[in-house]
């Protein structure tokens, strides 16, 4: 009962935060869609089989957007929420950066994760004249199973970015480069990685592969994927909790430096 109450509270906070971010959410969602189109339309057009390429590449949009969002939320917690005392209110209510990201996750996954994915499928199909049948034939159980893996990757991106912003004076440029590196990597199918199970320790890679599995376009065997997604989910959730605690300790000890 207490757990249910806590989940309900988290969802309520998440809904409040989602409403506060609504303009930015719509803008980010469209933004992600068009950047993805710019990269993926030529990529798919240059491959030998467009129908395979869309199934391999487009699911990565969901995870790429969630990683970007996570990193944005972490930065917001450390930089933007200081104004008007919002950060103080959140911390007094026990809302850590982990909690903050986790509470917004359900709605963000739909609007920032899956909505641009669906729109990109529609536009790319129109672009390249590919039918939509593949998009509707997915395994719903695997799709649901991908949610905790995506969650772990997003909260890690958020808490790690937040810690980076608090600890490092060059975080602004550094986080941009890290974001680009992560975004480039999540589109690469794990079968091309030099070491097996490396995907488990790179945020987002396993999550994309599980989404690919839902569409039958996974590039590594399903057995390996079960192992690497379990490792990835546990590892990144644990690291996120540690990073979130480190953020709390840092703020309690030094406060937050407002940087614009």
């Amino acid at each position: 009962m207490r757990l249910l109450k806590e989940v309900g509270r988290a969802l309520l906070i998440g809904y409040g935060m989602f409403r506060m971010h609504l303009t930015s959410e719509v803008s980010s969602s469209l933004n992600a869609l068009f950047w993805a189109l710019l990269l993926l339309a030529p990529t798919i057009l240059f491959t030998n089989e467009a129908s395979t390429a869309v199934k391999v590449l487009l699911p990565a949009i969901v995870v790429a957007n969630m990683l970007l969002l996570g990193s944005g939320l972490g930065m917001e917690y450390a930089v933007w929420l200081v104004g008007e005392g919002v950060l103080d209110d959140l911390r007094l209510s026990g809302v850590s950066v982990f909690y903050y990201t986790a509470s917004t996750f359900p709605l963000e996954l739909v609007v920032i994760g899956f909505l641009p994915f669906i729109l990109s499928v529609l536009i790319i199909s129109c672009y390249l004249g590919i039918g939509l049948a593949w998009f509707l034939s997915f395994n719903p159980f695997v799709l649901v199973a991908s949610i905790p893996v995506i969650f772990a990757a997003e909260v890690f991106a958020s808490t790690a970015s937040c810690l980076l912003y608090l600890k490092n004076p060059f975080s602004r440029s550094l986080s941009g480069v890290i974001q680009i590196a992560l975004l480039t990597i999540v589109f690469i199918p794990p079968k091309y990685l030099p070491v097996a199970f490396l995907d488990a320790v790179v945020p987002g890679l396993t999550a994309v592969e599980v989404l690919r599995l839902a569409y039958g376009s996974n590039t590594i065997p399903a057995g390996n994927l079960v192992a690497s997604s379990t490792i990835s989910t546990i590892l990144f959730t644990a690291l996120s909790i540690l990073a979130s605690r480190a953020v709390e300790n840092h703020i309690s000890r030094y406060g937050v430096e407002a940087r614009y």
């Binding site: 030529p42 990529t43 798919i44 240059f46 491959t47 030998n48 089989e49 395979t52 390429a53 391999v56 590449l57 589109f187 690469i188 199918p189 091309y192």
Partner: peptide
């Protein structure tokens, strides 16, 4: 490189 990876 992405299309090269996918096309092999």
């Amino acid at each position: 490189f992405m299309p090269a990876y996918i096309s092999g």
